[in-house]
């Protein structure tokens, strides 16, 4: 399936893009992250959370949504 992934903050610097579509055959966020880690080595050293359909989810969550986002630590205010 095709998954749209959004990147923010320093994660977007690592990936050098803010959004991309990835063809993915696994089932969980964690498996998707394995794919991303092999594509972007520097991602491994960075702290981030993952949102699925605009909600934060644990890495073992099954991918059900079309929109995944990698979010670095928040810095509002």
């Amino acid at each position: 399936m095709n998954i749209s992934i959004k990147y923010f903050g320093f994660i977007a610097e690592v990936t050098d893009c803010e959004e991309e579509t990835i063809s993915f055959s696994g089932t969980t966020i964690s498996e998707l992250l394995d794919v991303l880690h092999s594509k972007y080595e520097a991602l491994k050293n960075n702290d981030f959370q993952v949102a699925q359909n605009q909600s934060l989810v644990p890495f073992e969550t099954e991918i059900t949504g079309k929109e995944i986002a990698l979010l670095p630590p928040f810095a509002g205010g």
Binding site: F8, G9, A69, L71, P72, P73, F74, A75, G77
Partner: peptide, 27 residues
């Protein structure tokens, strides 16, 4: 309200230094 905003809202801040280098802010 302010504490919830700081903890829960996905806003990201790039701290820009006077020499145009930068780092990413963390709450």
């Amino acid at each position: 309200i302010v504490e919830k905003i700081k903890a829960n809202v996905p806003v990201f801040g790039k701290e820009i230094f006077e020499d145009d280098s930068h780092q990413w802010k963390v709450n």
